[in-house]
């Protein structure tokens, strides 16, 4: 099997990831003070999703890896979202 070229991330990109995670954590704390009603969970999930995305793409090197890994990651996220959708499909019609 062929070996892919290793990619070494720069300190700059690690600092970017750290800073983004700190800022987004601050935002997720800040939004708890707002009264968003039913959107509460959605907003929290969106911020958490953005944090997970940053970790996946830069910290875990998805951006620099074989595209196959991106495809599999996206497929897994799609399955996860479908499972969530099907579960809440029941709740929304009860």
């Amino acid at each position: 099997m062929s070996q892919e070229k290793p990619h070494i991330s720069s300190y700059r990109s690690h600092v970017f990831v750290l800073a983004a995670l700190i800022v987004l954590t601050g935002i997720s704390v800040a939004v708890t003070t707002l009264e968003l009603g039913r959107l509460d969970t959605l907003v929290a999930m969106l911020i958490a999703g953005a944090k997970a995305g940053i970790v996946l793409v830069w910290f875990m090197h998805l951006k620099f890896d074989n595209k196959l890994y991106t495809i599999f990651t996206v497929l897994v996220i799609v399955v996860f979202l479908l499972v969530l959708y099907v579960t809440f499909f029941d709740y929304s019609y009860r």
Partner: peptide, 10 residues
Amino acid sequence: SGMSGRALFA
């Protein structure tokens, strides 16, 4: 178990 009717159908 008490799921919604639409979920049962799906």
